[in-house]
Amino acid sequence: MRTTTPPPPPAALTVPEVMAALKLSRSKVYDLLRTNQLRSFHAGRARRIPAEALRQYIDKQMEEAA
């Protein structure tokens, strides 16, 4: 039996991937980016959100909810 390891998670996500992960609208994700609540960078014309930035945002939301 051959087992394969799953591919590593992406280092950076697209806006639609963040929308799906957080179950938020496109405009809400861009609001988070605009207000620097969620860090991002540009790769050419494409905006990318580092996976670590998404984890930090979620952790902060969890701390504030506690």
Score class of each variant (00 low, 15 high):
Met1Leu: 10
Met1Ala: 11
Arg2Trp: 10
Arg2Leu: 14
Thr3Phe: 13
Thr4Gln: 11
Thr4His: 11
Thr4Pro: 05
Thr5Gly: 10
Thr5Glu: 11
Pro6Cys: 10
Pro6Ser: 14
Pro7Ser: 10
Pro7Ile: 06
Pro7Phe: 04
Pro8Asp: 01
Pro8Glu: 02
Pro10Asp: 07
Ala11Phe: 05
Ala11Arg: 09
Ala12Gly: 08
Ala12Gln: 04
Ala12Tyr: 04
Leu13Thr: 01
Leu13Ile: 02
Leu13Lys: 00
Thr14Phe: 01
Val15Ser: 05
Val15His: 06
Pro16Leu: 03
Pro16Lys: 03
Glu17Ala: 13
Glu17Pro: 01
Val18Arg: 00
Val18Ile: 05
Met19Pro: 00
Met19Thr: 03
Met19Asn: 06
Ala20Trp: 01
Ala21Ile: 05
Leu22Val: 09
Leu22Tyr: 06
Leu22Thr: 07
Leu24Tyr: 05
Ser25Leu: 07
Arg26Thr: 02
Arg26Tyr: 08
Arg26Val: 01
Ser27Thr: 14
Lys28Leu: 12
Lys28Arg: 14
Val29Thr: 00
Tyr30Trp: 10
Tyr30Ala: 03
Asp31Met: 04
Asp31Cys: 07
Leu32Met: 09
Leu32Thr: 08
Leu33Gln: 03
Leu33Ser: 01
Arg34Ser: 09
Arg34Cys: 02
Thr35Val: 10
Thr35Met: 08
Asn36Phe: 07
Asn36Pro: 00
Asn36Met: 07
Gln37Pro: 01
Leu38Trp: 03
Leu38Glu: 01
Leu38Tyr: 02
Leu38Gln: 01
Arg39Val: 11
Ser40Glu: 08
Ser40His: 14
Phe41Met: 13
Phe41Ile: 10
Phe41Gly: 08
His42Leu: 15
His42Trp: 09
Ala43Trp: 12
Ala43Gly: 10
Gly44Trp: 02
Gly44Phe: 04
Arg45Tyr: 15
Arg45Ile: 14
Arg45Ser: 15
Arg45Asn: 15
Ala46Met: 15
Arg47Leu: 14
Arg47Tyr: 08
Arg48Thr: 12
Arg48Pro: 12
Ile49Pro: 00
Pro50Thr: 01
Pro50Gly: 01
Ala51Thr: 10
Ala51Leu: 08
Glu52Asp: 12
Glu52His: 08
Ala53His: 07
Ala53Tyr: 08
Ala53Asp: 13
Ala53Glu: 12
Leu54Lys: 01
Arg55Thr: 09
Tyr57Pro: 03
Ile58Met: 13
Asp59Trp: 03
Asp59Arg: 06
Asp59Thr: 07
Lys60Cys: 06
Met62Val: 14
Met62Leu: 15
Met62Tyr: 11
Glu63Thr: 05
Ala65Tyr: 08
Ala65His: 07
Ala66His: 06
Ala66Arg: 10
